[in-house]
């Protein structure tokens, strides 16, 4: 299997904190790979590290290999927007508020292709058509458009230079459910047409199950489970994945009960980070960090056996 992006043993430290502690993942060409986990587990930072957009003061080590080149520590400006693009979480704030949508497309297109302003506008109109938006959106300012329209614009912008990898960082989180569905369908459809790989960062397991080929479950800066979307999400082996799935609200469940995982993400210095919140915790879990075996990092996968 060929590899488009491979992240190997990525560690990110910010000050004294180490929010990402050795994440390894792989995205094949044209593959949709989910990176799931709750807030604070390091999924967004992992995505930003690929583009070299970590916040000031953050330090990354390990390897980020794209198309055979190790990117970490390199200037990645030339590949941003051209080979790898990102669709952000909040479409409402992700666009420059004082520039028209068209102006923002032109800026990006001209930075990468050096084409004329007129050609860039024509290309921008074409891109908007591909995300089912009318040309007049080009002359609109971001505050005049809805979140769904803006996210379509974002996707169109992401595709402007035919990237090989699109990182979708919680791309549907800020949208309401029906709009989120439309955006997902659009992303899938465009992915089939253009064949780019997708790193789909989300906390929404239902979405991950629907569109991903494979998923990585992150907890406290480590991959705790990986595998095909159906294997992981239909037959979870790590207790964290099970708990996450259990926390999904279900229409067929008895009324009045909503499950959650007690506590919040903590980084253990010793042993398994999930130990404090795990229902099947044993003594071994508190002293020894479980290594990944068969795609699951747990001493006792599959629950109390």
């Amino acid at each position: 299997m060929t590899t488009l992006l491979s992240v190997e043993d990525l560690e990110i430290s910010i000050g004294n904190g180490r929010p990402v502690r050795g994440v390894s993942l792989r995205v094949g060409p044209g593959e949709i790979v989910g990176v799931v986990g709750e807030t604070g587990c390091g999924k967004t930072l992992t995505g930003l590290a690929v583009l070299g957009l970590l916040p000031p003061g953050a330090h990354a080590s390990g390897r980020v290999v794209l198309g055979g080149r190790d990117l970490l520590g390199q200037d990645r400006r030339a590949i941003r927007g051209r080979e790898v693009t990102m669709v952000f979480q909040n479409p409402g704030t992700a666009f420059d508020p004082v520039t028209t949508i068209g102006g923002q497309f032109v800026r990006v297109l001209r930075a990468h292709t050096g084409c004329t302003r007129k050609a860039a506008y024509a290309r921008a109109a074409e891109l908007l058509t591909s995300v089912e938006l009318p040309d007049r959106v080009l002359n609109a300012y971001p505050h005049q458009l809805s979140g769904g329209m803006l996210q379509r614009c974002m996707i169109a912008l992401a595709l402007s230079c035919e990237p090989s990898l699109v990182i979708a960082d919680e791309a549907t989180t800020a949208l309401d459910v029906t709009v989120a569905r439309q955006i997902l369908r659009l992303l899938l459809q465009l992915q089939r047409e253009h064949g780019f790989g997708v790193m789909f960062v989300t906390h929404n397991l239902a979405e991950a199950r629907d569109i991903c080929d494979r998923v990585y479950v992150l907890y406290a800066g480590r991959v705790v489970e990986e595998g095909t979307a159906s294997a992981v999400l239909d037959g979870p082996r790590h207790p964290y994945t099970r708990a996450l799935l259990g926390a999904l609200p279900r229409l067929d469940a008895p009324r009045g009960r909503l499950d959650s995982i007690p506590g919040s993400v903590t980084h253990a210095d010793q042993g398994c980070s999930f130990a404090d919140r795990c229902t099947d915790v044993r003594d071994l879990c508190r002293t020894e960090l479980p290594a990944a075996r068969d795609g699951v990092a747990c001493h006792f996968p599959g629950g109390a056996a």
């Binding site: 400006r77 927007g81 666009f95 420059d96 930075a111 912008l157």
Partner: peptide
């Protein structure tokens, strides 16, 4: 956020500072 977007789409730091942030 939108300045991060500009960077994520490969705009030069000069453009980001003088054309986008200053504007």
């Amino acid at each position: 956020d939108h300045v991060r977007t500009a960077r994520a789409y490969g705009l030069a730091e000069r453009t980001v500072t003088w054309r986008i942030a200053l504007r």
